[in-house]
């Protein structure tokens, strides 16, 4: 339910893939003499001296250093983009009239309340919630781990009828979207230690 850089990854893979493909095919075309028709002299037995000469040009080390820096920045930024993002909503402003004071609630406060509420649903073992959107158009993304023998339909019904109703009631507006991802807890690792009566 956290967001990944799927679009950037695919774009990056396609761009680098195309560059590699074109470069590789160009080298192979030269090696097998296919380029000789287009560029006379570039026969398979020609030396790579013109390529090596580029590296022998003055200032080529400085240019290479700059290129290395740019590549390093791209690599590090791409790696950093892999960290899953919650993309929670900005702190919600919920006052009626800002002149008499503002009311601030962070998305995590509401998410924590929804998580507690979800764990009150029978057969839910663990729950995570993320609040996205704005105070006027809130979106809830939920993940619940239910017991392997749970009645999944009953869990979904309880989330639809009770948990999202509570959240909508607290926020004072209908939820613009609710997403529920259901996981099945295979072994009963997390035992409930207390019961609220």
């Amino acid at each position: 339910m956290k967001r990944l850089a799927a679009g950037a990854n695919r774009t990056g893979l396609i761009i680098v893939g195309l560059i590699f493909l074109v470069a590789g095919l160009a080298v192979l075309a030269l090696s097998f003499g296919l380029a000789a028709a287009v560029a006379p002299g570039l026969t398979p037995d020609a030396k790579l001296q013109p390529v090596a000469a580029v590296f022998a040009l003055p200032f080529s080390a400085v240019i290479a250093l700059a290129a290395a820096l740019i590549l390093a920045i791209i690599g590090v930024r791409w790696l950093a983009a892999q960290v899953p993002r919650k993309d929670s909503a900005k702190p919600l402003r919920m006052q009626e009239d800002a002149r008499s004071g503002v009311t601030t609630v962070t998305a995590n406060v509401i998410a924590a309340a929804v998580e507690d509420d979800l764990e009150d649903t029978p057969e839910v073992v663990d729950a995570q919630a993320i609040l996205r959107g704005t105070a006027r158009r809130p979106e809830l993304v939920l993940h619940v781990d239910v017991d392997e023998r749970a009645d999944v339909d009953a869990v979904v019904a309880d989330i639809a009828d009770r948990v999202t109703r509570n959240a909508s009631h607290a926020l004072g507006v209908p939820l613009s979207a609710v997403g529920v991802e259901i996981g099945i807890a295979r072994s009963r690792q997390r035992r409930q230690r207390s019961v609220r009566l």
Partner: peptide, 25 residues
Amino acid sequence: RQVDVDVKWLKPNASGTGRSVRNLQ
């Protein structure tokens, strides 16, 4: 003139409804 409110947590109302956490261990 102004009251700025920062809501730090939201919890089910434990007092009043007679709900309490009892440790069963």
